[in-house]
Amino acid sequence: MSIVDLNVPDIGDFDSVEVIEILVKAGDTIQAEQSLITVESDKASMEIPAERGGVVKEILVKLGDKVSQGTPVVRVEAADAASAAP
């Protein structure tokens, strides 16, 4: 088992977007592709999915934070590499 940070993937033409909802909490068991947070730009809102499954150890963003591609969102204890999203 390893501790990994799950980051914001490529979100298109947006430099930064605001976190408007956090969909998981510490202790939750998540699956690959499960939504972690909802972000909103001036044009749209979108959910940011998990790259892999595991147990959420820490939430690294707060409501109102601005995030961009590569920003760490949550820290998880991943069971193994097989839980990575395709």
Score class of each variant (00 low, 15 high):
59 I>H: 13
26 A>L: 00
75 R>N: 03
33 E>S: 10
63 L>H: 14
44 A>D: 04
80 D>M: 01
16 S>K: 14
69 Q>H: 07
46 M>R: 00
71 T>M: 05
63 L>S: 13
19 V>I: 13
68 S>N: 11
7 N>K: 15
10 D>A: 11
84 A>G: 00
32 A>P: 02
77 E>W: 04
8 V>Y: 07
49 P>T: 04
1 M>F: 11
69 Q>W: 00
43 K>S: 03
44 A>M: 14
23 L>T: 04
43 K>L: 04
52 R>M: 15
19 V>W: 00
5 D>K: 15
80 D>A: 12
6 L>V: 15
26 A>N: 08
3 I>H: 06
31 Q>S: 14
73 V>S: 05
47 E>I: 00
47 E>Y: 03
75 R>L: 07
55 V>T: 15
26 A>T: 13
13 D>N: 09
57 K>N: 13
39 V>L: 05
48 I>R: 03
41 S>Y: 08
16 S>Y: 06
80 D>T: 11
14 F>S: 10
21 E>W: 00
77 E>M: 14
17 V>G: 04
1 M>A: 09
33 E>L: 06
12 G>N: 10
72 P>F: 04
52 R>L: 02
27 G>Y: 05
71 T>C: 05
81 A>W: 08
76 V>D: 09
70 G>W: 10
52 R>Q: 11
45 S>A: 13
34 Q>K: 04
77 E>S: 13
40 E>K: 13
22 I>W: 01
11 I>K: 02
20 I>M: 00
44 A>S: 10
37 I>Q: 09
69 Q>K: 15
14 F>V: 14
52 R>H: 05
37 I>N: 07
33 E>C: 00
78 A>Q: 15
54 G>E: 11
50 A>H: 05
67 V>C: 09
83 S>F: 12
65 D>T: 07
63 L>K: 14
57 K>F: 06
59 I>D: 12
18 E>A: 04
38 T>P: 00
1 M>H: 10
38 T>Y: 01
31 Q>A: 13
38 T>I: 14
30 I>G: 06
78 A>N: 04
12 G>P: 02
30 I>W: 03
63 L>C: 10
46 M>I: 07
66 K>N: 15
74 V>R: 07
38 T>K: 10
21 E>S: 13
32 A>G: 04
22 I>A: 02
82 A>P: 00
3 I>N: 06
17 V>I: 09
22 I>H: 01
31 Q>W: 02
82 A>H: 05
82 A>S: 15
67 V>Y: 12
54 G>N: 09
67 V>W: 10
74 V>T: 07
14 F>A: 14
7 N>P: 00
78 A>T: 08
83 S>D: 15
25 K>F: 00
71 T>W: 11
21 E>C: 01
4 V>W: 08
41 S>P: 06
61 V>Q: 15
